[in-house]
Design a binder for these strands. Sequence first.
DNA 1: CTTCTTGTTACTGA
DNA 2: ATCAGTAACAAGAA
Length: 292
Amino acid sequence: MPELPEVEVVRLFLQSNIVGKNISNLEIITPKSFIGNPKLVKGQKIIFTSRLGKQLSIHLKNGSILLFHLKMTGQIIVLPALSREGRKAGRVSFGHPTKDAFGDLPNKSTRLIFTFSDNSKLFFNDQRKFGWVKLLSKIELTEVQRNLGIDILSSKFTPNYLLNQLKPTARPIKAVLLDQNKFAGIGNIYANDALFLAKIHPSFPSNKLSIKKITLLHHFLIQIMIDSIKSGGSTAKDNKYIHPDGSTGNHQFNFQVYQRQNEPCLKCKTKIKKIKIAGRGTFYCPKCQKLP
DNA sequence: CTTCTTGTTACTGA
DNA sequence: ATCAGTAACAAGAA
C-alpha cells in the first residue's frame, strides 16, 4: 500500500527525527523480516536518509545502508524515550510495552525493534510479513536497485522518458505504470487516479497513446505525488499506513476513483466502475476515460 | 468454510 | 531469448 508519497512522508519524518542517533540494539522478532548481519548495525550512527521509488534507505556511519521495503502492510513507528505515561509518571518506558495512539508496542505485527542510545525506539511492524529490511553495502544497494526505473520525482522523469517506456508494449497503460522496472514509485492508488486526471482509460494500449496524452499523464503523475506528500500520504481502507508518530495521512480524502466503485464521478456524476487489469483492482469513470 | 486483497518475484507457457 | 500472465507469499476481512 505505501507507494512513493507514503514512503517519502516517512522518510521526511526520519530525516528530521532520527538522523544523528546511534543504534544501540536491534531485536529481531521475525527472522524473515531482516536480511543481513544484525551485529553490524550496533553502534552505528545514522547519517542521512534517501528514497528510490518505494524503497527507503537509512545510511549508516560505516557506509552501510539499512534498506526498507514496506510492501503492503509495513509500518515504521518511532517512539520517544519516554512514553506518554512515562512522561507523566517521570519514568523511562524502556523494557516495558509502550502505549500510544496505535496501542501497545511491541504488538502482534512487530517484526524488528531498533533501540537508539537515547532509549528512543524504531519499530518495524508488518502484519503480512511481505516487507523487509536489508543491511547492505553501497555496492549491494546498487545491485538491489539496479533494475528499478526512474523515480517519478527525479528530474530524469521527463515526458520523453515516459514516452520511451510506453512505446515498446501494447499492454494496458495501467499495467505498464505499475512496472517498477520502468517507473519507481507508482502503485495502485496513484496509477488509477493519475489516469483519471489525464482522462485515459486504464485498458488503453500503452503504445497507442498520443504525445498529448503522454504529456498530460506525465504532468499528473508528478502532480499527484506532490499533492499526496503535502497531505501526508494516503491512509486508505484496509491500509496499514501511518506516520512514524502514529498519525494518519489525509490524501485518501482526495481520491478521484480509487476505491470509489459505484460512487459518482467527481467530474460528471457517472458511476465509477471497478474492473481487473493484470490481476489488480482497477477503478475508472466510463464517461471521462473512454476507449476510442 | 471460501474468496479476495495487496507488491513483488518466481515460475510457466507462448 | 523475450514477453506476458499467474501462482505464491501472509494474514485478515467479508
